[in-house]
């Protein structure tokens, strides 16, 4: 069975594209992934998504988008895409379990947490090193943890972890945070959080689990060791494009290349959200991109029929 459009990804970009495509009667198939919902599934309160006066929990917002897409007839499979094949008159998307065919594809695979690339990180990944504070925070009751990063995610993770940990070090390599002021103030005003600016993590140390981190101060070039039980990484994300096997043009940083944030180097393959957007990376901009991609697909399919 050949479909009109397949959407790969189920964050705000993918599901907004699904809502628009479904309402345009394109009967989209959403290849949602096993851990569907994107980055918002591992956040707590979303306070800057318009329409929710008191904020909304990330997973609840994504659940709502999912149900909304289904209400208009989007079909959803919880599988991970492994390959996209671009034939002349159709696109094939393979997953671990199945193979699907469509006229067009929207790539909305988003981004995955960036790793530090320091010694000890791989060894202790899952044993004290984590990229998901909401998943693993509860293992650190009355413990000491470090959050690495300087953006909104780092502020949120540090604040969230004070629910469990007795002390949270917020470690940032620059002299200033790039997070939004409201998030920064919340972290700075929390008595359990101590900030270390101009500080880089050089190594993660321990026996069977994390016991300390080696820090480097890039202002006075001093080194010191800090005792921690856990290290939470919030140093940004990298776009998920590995399944595309270099068929599609990427930027130097590895994002899908697009002049308008919607079209890609391949006719019939469109893009939306954080897999393309290296600049804004917000839930609302991703949702906007998903809407645009679905509208462009609709136009493209109409031309195909002419």
């Amino acid at each position: 069975m050949k479909r009109k459009v397949i959407i790969i990804g189920s964050g705000p970009a993918g599901l907004t594209a699904a809502i628009y495509a479904a309402r345009a009667d394109l009967k989209p198939l959403v290849i949602a992934g096993i851990t569907w919902g994107g980055q918002l599934m591992s956040t707590t309160e979303i306070e800057n998504f318009p329409g929710f006066i008191e904020g909304i929990e990330g997973p609840e917002l994504m659940n709502n988008m999912m149900e909304q897409a289904k209400r208009f007839g989007a079909e959803v499979v919880f599988e991970n895409a492994t390959q996209v094949i671009n034939n002349k008159n159709s696109r094939i998307v393979k997953t671990y379990e199945n193979e699907y065919e469509a006229d067009s594809v929207i790539l909305a695979t988003g981004a995955t947490p960036r790793r530090l690339n320091v010694e000890g990180e791989d060894k202790f990944y899952g044993r004290g090193v984590s990229t998901c504070a909401t998943c693993d925070g509860a293992f650190y009751k009355e413990k000491t943890v470090a959050v690495i990063g300087g953006g909104d995610s780092a502020m949120e993770d540090a604040t969230f972890l004070t629910r469990f940990a007795k002390r949270v070090y917020l470690i940032h390599r620059r002299a200033e945070f790039r997070a939004s002021p409201i998030m920064i103030n919340r972290a700075l005003n929390n008595p359990k959080i101590e900030v270390l600016y101009n500080t880089e993590v050089r190594e993660i140390e321990g026996e069977n689990k994390v016991s300390s981190i080696k820090l480097f101060n890039n202002q006075d070039n001093s080194e010191k060791s800090l005792e921690v039980d856990g290290v939470f990484l919030a140093i940004g994300h990298i776009p998920v494009t590995d399944f595309l096997e270099n068929q599609i043009a990427l930027t130097d940083e590895g994002y899908i290349k697009s002049d308008d944030g919607v079209h890609t180097s391949m006719d019939g393959i469109f893009v939306a959200g954080d897999v393309e957007d290296h600049k804004y990376r917000q839930a609302i901009t991703a949702a906007g991109a998903g809407c645009k991609a679905a509208l462009e697909v609709q136009k493209w399919l109409e031309k195909l029929e002419d």
């Binding site: 096993i34 851990t35 599934m41 591992s42 997973p59 998901c132 909401t134 998943c135 509860a138």
Partner: peptide
């Protein structure tokens, strides 16, 4: 697993 862990919910059916 734990109730508050969203990816845990994703693998429950698996």
């Amino acid at each position: 697993w734990a109730t508050w862990c969203t990816p845990c919910r994703a693998i429950a059916p698996i």
